[in-house]
Amino acid sequence: MPGKVLVNTTINGEATDFRCEPRQSLLECLRDILQLTGTKEGCNDGNCGACTVLMDGRPLTACLVLGVEAEGRNITTIEGIARGSKLHPLQQAFLEEAALQCGICTPGFIVSAKALLDRDKNPSEADIRLWLANNLCRCTGYDKIVRAVQKAAAEMRA
């Protein structure tokens, strides 16, 4: 087993460095080393989207990225979505629209949806469904999630 590697990165706007084994995924590094447990593990093979984070603004599943690949990158996790003590419009809309039940997929959905709204201020229902097809939710049937994203988009356009 090779020794640990020092990784210099930016997480949620703060310069952060951590030491990890080369075999550790970014998901493990976030959860186990940095205690950023808001990013969830549902499958560890890139299929459920619960661990979605943004790397330089692009959504990806943290379980399929190595910790060392975060070197020099800008990472956003669910912990970095709220604006100070004020919830992001997506977070607020998820609450108001009851778009979560158990909540385990919610961080992934919110991070994913943020990446969508950062690109497209007025996505159609079909756009939202296609974009969020990377994230599995087993509780809601997606109806209220789609509505929450539409509501947040409208809020952000206003």
Binding site: T37, G38, T39, E79, L87, F94, L95, G103, T106, P107
Partner: peptide, 11 residues
Amino acid sequence: GADKVTGRAIY
């Protein structure tokens, strides 16, 4: 709700 949309809830 707030705990669950901010990643703060402990599973």
